[in-house]
Design a protein around this nucleic acid. Structure first.
Length: 997
DNA sequence: ACGTACACCTA
DNA sequence: GTAGGTGTACGTC
């Protein structure tokens, strides 16, 4: 390199983050792999390499390099362990793109540079200064403020997205100081993203003003006594050391050992075919054409390159360094699985540290008495401010709301409790302090002579308290910890506060121990702290004498409420490190925690039901049921309670002397639909009428009568509640009302679905996964015939029948297909000859033959089942494809039927649970995907029914929304892993749920 | 008032 | 054969 040369240095790691935020539409490869940032990167490189002169850089490079971060372990981390401590894992779709951008760089024949222990910025700084010393010019392709300290008359920066060059005047305009003072400015201001402390209370404006006055940081610190403003002076004096440390963190090193000298960065000629091969593999059509034209090569004659995608470590494992994932070649056709459970050495070390911390904390808290006498009642604004300040200081606060209702859509806020631990991060952590902030406690109005209901004296005014809490709860840098956060999230949302930055102890417990007991606070407190919290009914009473929480005496309320926050914080301290220790951080962060706001918003939106339709149906059902009742009484010869299985049994099997089928576990004759159908088949009239009557009364009581009672008085919609932590497999459950079991299987029941309607000007859009569990099975068990059938879009049950019975798919009798279908379902459920025989109404021996035949045809399924059982016996749990665990502590039971039941459940859980994980991922991804298309305001996700998502969509937005929803759902496993089987989603929009489904 | 059994709705 | 929730009847407290 010589004077007059021009070196281009691209901040590769920085580009990917900016590209992610700057390039709105999500670009995917045809297999679903997100490649938007790679695309932006390639286009940018091509432009700079071919016509940099026409951009605002205005010169052609002679030397060129792309620089990357190597790992998060740098000298800065040594210097200050909290450096970048707040940084969370990168957005999932970026992870595989880090590696792809390195490969892109090589395809462009450009040096790709990274150095252990240093950030990309330090390498850039070292090259820039070295080139400058020779007399060359430098352009740094980045707009990161951290690099602005490098700008000189010979070193410029270039914001490729805005096509804007950044020189000395631009830095001064933006920050108020010249580049050489940027280090001091950043040292004072700090950086909350990188967790550089800086001087509290000093922002960019103040820092610039101080630097103007004093010249530099050292002078400022030496002459700090001259500062007039008292508060500012004290602040700077007190934090002088922090400022010096911060300066070390923000100052870029210019002495990084360079493997490649400047001369090695000389710009080489492009290798056209190599670049075209890479671009083809990425499916960047227009860029491929442009490059092929320019290089004069025939794109059609070049095979796509084999591209290595690093993504395995993303699916599971406690932590991730970009580029440290397990690699797997996936091109041209992707073939999973790519997830590998084996943690890397650094992950193991981190897991071990976390395990030590978890057990130390468990030991410290287990059985330790909780001092309720120390709880504080916050009765004035000053005290509240001091608690908010304490939360900010430590960056961690346990949070709980007290309200008037268990239903967050109906609940009025009565009070808030907080708990903090000073010095939580150090081994000598301080004691936990907890407080209750009463806001809506009331008294009076309970007899005719009182002057009505009044707020109790000595409470902070609601509006003032909410304003203070809003700043805290919406600040992502303060971690809020709650138990069953979705509840508190909704209550606060209804008070205008959208919580950001949170953890949920219930969900952490669920990820650690799904299948082991419940995850309510009282249970967890017993299990992990050896402590029984005050019972709710002991403060609010129970039954007829129960009062709402706003009528509870404030002192009693303080003991109860503050304890909840106290216990929550203790649980978090004990449980959170266990996630990393068990390698479950990713499951929690990707599949669990992000669903809290998603579900809260769905619950908040609710869905409209047409009460007229339901009341008309209810009348019809009542009439029909009444006429059945007359007939039933006539046939029975007496009136009795048809709804009582006991009385019905007496009539059928006692009085009428019919042959009883099976018995229930309490020894009574069963009157199940199965038994009654069997009797009806023998030509007996009564049982058929009972079955029909039951169907009608079931529809009436559970649906047409009950649903209207759930219509919210203000929103006029029905708001279900989803439980994130009540299944062992990872499925959600829905209650009050349960909208996951609305009838669909027969015409009479489906009428109920016509009552679920869209708002005027909108439609309901239903999108459901086709055969998702069988596809998951084909993936995990890797069954060639199943994979092929799904790849070809063949009828899977017909294929199974054809394989088993040797019947051609064309013209197959429906009975043959029906049997195969039952077997396929049976497989998913952990098949038994007993169950299959029951389902098909055949002999157990015949069912056993079917199963044997099936396993002969699909030996991989038998292997999968045996391996799963062995895994469950060894570990006590099984895993989904994303690493979620379902525990089966009774899998080794000496009771054969208990054992067999647990084995079937263990076989089912990875299949059901993986499907549940996929739709969870889809739910997390779909709203951002819609937002990128500008559809946020026009499309609202309302319901989830295990393999189906229901949206309410503006009429004019349906066409745009449908492909976004379908594509997001079909590619929801990406980029965590690539499925061996395509996922298929069917979608339809209509005015009501029946027609949309 | 609360818990359990039974039956039946969904994926 | 898996995973859930709800309504009614009927027992116990």
């Amino acid at each position: 390199m010589k004077k007059g040369d021009h070196l281009f240095l691209v901040d590769g790691s920085g580009f990917i983050f900016r590209a992610f935020h700057a390039l709105p539409p999500l670009t995917r490869k045809s297999d679903g792999l997100p490649v938007g940032a790679v695309s932006g990167f390639c286009n940018m490189l091509w432009k700079l390499l071919t016509n940099a002169r026409d951009t605002s850089v205005g010169v052609t490079p002679t030397h060129f390099a792309v620089i990357f971060d190597y790992s998060s372990k740098t000298f800065r981390k040594e210097l200050y362990p909290d450096y970048k401590a707040n940084r969370s894992a990168p957005p999932e779709e970026l992870v595989p793109q880090f590696g792809l951008i390195r490969q892109a760089t090589r395809a462009f024949n450009l040096p790709c540079i990274e150095t252990d222990g240093f950030e990309a910025d330090d390498i850039i700084a070292t090259y820039a200064r070295a080139a400058e010393a020779i007399g060359a010019d430098v352009t740094i392709i980045s707009s990161d403020k951290d690099l602005m300290q490098l700008v000189t008359p010979n070193v410029h920066m270039y914001d490729s997205m805005k096509d804007k060059q950044i020189g000395i005047p631009d830095v001064i305009e933006k920050w108020g100081v010249p580049p050489e003072k940027m280090i001091d400015l950043q040292a004072m201001v700090g950086d909350s993203v990188d967790n550089v402390p800086g001087i509290p209370g000093i922002g960019p404006k103040t820092a610039a003003q101080l630097l103007e006055e004093f010249g530099d940081l050292d002078t400022l610190l030496a002459r700090a006594s001259e500062i007039k403003q008292v508060k500012r002076r004290e602040n700077i004096v007190a934090n002088a050391d922090l400022a010096r440390l911060s300066r070390q963190l923000v100052a870029l090193r210019t002495d990084v050992p360079l493997e490649l000298g400047l001369d090695a960065l000389v710009l080489e000629k492009q290798d056209g075919p190599k670049l075209v091969a890479f671009l083809k593999a990425m499916e960047f059509g227009s860029l491929t054409r442009r490059v092929a034209d320019a290089c004069d090569c025939d794109a059609g004659a070049i095979d796509p390159a084999t591209v290595t995608v690093e993504w395995g470590a993303e699916a599971r494992g406690p932590d991730l360094d970009p580029g440290a994932g397990d690699a797997q070649a996936v091109d041209p056709a992707p073939s999973g699985p790519v997830a590998d459970a084996r943690p890397s050495a650094s992950e193991k070390a981190e897991g071990a540290r976390a395990a030590d911390l978890a057990s130390a904390r468990h030991e410290a808290f287990m059985g330790k008495p909780i001092d309720r006498a120390g709880y504080v009642t916050i009765r004035d604004v000053a005290t509240l401010k001091s608690w908010v300040a304490a939360a900010r200081e430590t960056g961690l606060v346990a949070f709980d709301t007290e309200t008037t209702s268990l239903d967050p859509m109906q609940a009025d806020l009565v009070g808030v409790s907080l708990a903090v631990q000073d010095n939580a991060a150090s081994p000598a952590a301080g004691p936990i302090r907890a407080a209750y902030l009463p806001l809506g406690h009331k008294a009076g109005g309970d007899d005719l002579f009182s002057d009505g209901v009044k707020l109790v004296e000595g409470q902070v005014p609601m509006a003032e308290a909410l304003a203070l809490l809003k700043d805290l709860l919406e600040d992502p840098s303060v971690l809020k910890v709650a138990q069953n956060l979705k509840y508190d999230y909704l209550v606060m949302k209804r008070h205008g506060i959208t919580m950001v930055g949170f953890d949920d102890t219930m969900l952490i417990s669920y990820v650690l121990e799904a299948g082991v007991g419940a995850h309510g606070m009282d249970t967890l407190s017993e299990r992990w702290l050896g402590h029984t919290p005050i019972a709710y009914k002991d403060v609010a009473g129970s039954g007829k004498s129960a009062v709402t929480f706003d009528r509870v005496d404030i002192d009693k309320a303080t003991a109860y409420a503050a304890e909840d926050a106290d216990v929550t914080l203790r649980l978090w301290l004990v449980l959170k490190p266990r996630l990393a220790a068990e390698g479950l951080t990713r499951v929690y962060e990707r599949l669990e925690r992000p669903l809290v706001p998603v579900l809260a918003h769905m619950e908040e939106r609710g869905i409209t039901i047409d009460r007229q339709i339901l009341s008309r149906l209810s009348g019809e059902l009542a009439q029909k049921a009444a006429s059945f009742e007359d007939e039933i009484y006539a046939l029975a010869g007496e009136r009795f309670n048809i709804g009582s299985p006991k009385q019905l049994g007496d009539i059928l099997f006692g009085k009428m002397g019919l042959p009883g089928g099976s018995k229930t576990k309490t020894g009574q004759w069963s009157t199940s639909a199965q038994v009654l159908e069997d009797l009806a088949a023998q030509g007996i009239e009564l049982p058929r009428k009972i079955v029909d009557w039951r169907q009608l009364t079931k529809l009436k009581s559970t649906y047409t009568d009950a649903l209207p009672s759930y219509v919210h008085p203000e929103t006029k919609r029905v708001h279900t509640s989803y439980s994130l932590a009540s299944t062992s497999t990872g499925r959600l459950s829905s209650s009050e009302p349960n909208l996951q079991n609305i009838p669909v299987r027969n015409a009479e029941g489906r009428k109920i679905r016509t009552a679920f309607i869209a708002t005027p000007g909108h439609k309901l859009l239903s999108a459901d996964y086709s055969q998702i569990e069988l596809r998951v099975l084909a993936h995990v068990a890797d069954i060639p015939q199943l994979r092929q059938a799904f790849a070809d879009g063949i009828d899977i049950h017909a294929m199974t029948a054809s394989e088993m019975f040797g019947v051609p798919v064309e013209g197959m009798p429906s009975e043959v297909r029906r049997r195969a279908k039952a077997i396929n379902f049976g497989i998913i459920y952990g098949i038994s000859a007993f169950g299959l025989a029951n389902q098909l109404g055949i002999e157990r021996s015949e069912a056993g033959d079917y199963i044997k035949k099936y396993f002969e045809r699909f030996p991989g399924i038998r292997d999968y089942m045996e391996n799963t059982k062995a895994f469950a016996r060894e570990h006590g749990y099984v895993e989904t494809i994303f690493g979620r665990r379902a525990h089966y502590p009774e899998i080794k039971s000496s009771n054969p039927s208990v054992r067999a039941f647990n084995e079937r459940a263990a076989i089912n859980a990875p299949i059901q649970g993986s499907a549940a994980d996929i739709i969870r991922r889809a739910m997390v991804q779909v709203e951002p995907a819609l937002a990128r298309m500008g559809l946020s305001e026009r499309v609202r996700m309302l319901l989830q029914v295990h393999d189906e998502l229901i949206f309410e969509v503006e009429d004019e937005a349906i066409e745009a929304a449908m492909p976004v929803i379908v594509s997001t759902m079909e590619h929801a496993a990406m980029p965590a892993l690539s499925m061996r089987v395509p996922l298929k989603v069917d979608a339809r929009a209509a005015h009501n749920w029946d027609e949309a489904h």
